[in-house]
């Protein structure tokens, strides 16, 4: 592990999370293990699977825009919201 003192603080929902600088959003989310990210079509919680931007299980809202948590580095003040799948779009 790199010996780095630099830490970064992000918002995960209402909570504040501190991670070493350079950590991915996926790592920040995993501070509440196992780091779930989104609700699937049938309502299951999911978490990162492939770790390399292929599976798209880790899509979350970062400062309001949908991005992949495993490929996004945490920045001070970032707002992260785990995204819920929207079911029943039409009443």
């Amino acid at each position: 592990m790199k010996n780095t003192a630099a830490m970064v603080e992000v918002h995960v929902g209402a909570a504040r999370v501190r991670v070493p600088a350079g950590s991915s959003v996926a790592a920040a989310l995993a501070q509440q293990p196992p780091g779930r990210t989104r609700l699937s079509v049938s309502g299951q919680w999911r978490a990162p699977l492939c770790g390399m931007g292929v599976c798209h299980e880790c899509r979350v809202l970062i400062n309001g825009r949908e991005r992949l948590a495993c490929q996004t580095v945490c920045e001070d003040g970032m707002h992260i919201t785990t995204s819920t799948a929207h079911t029943g779009g039409a009443a």
Partner: peptide, 18 residues
């Protein structure tokens, strides 16, 4: 949640997964 690839786990750890 908690199931990943093997290379996937490696990638996540490198990116700071505790």
């Amino acid at each position: 949640p908690g199931v990943t690839g093997a290379g996937g786990l490696q990638a996540l750890i490198k990116a700071g997964l505790d």
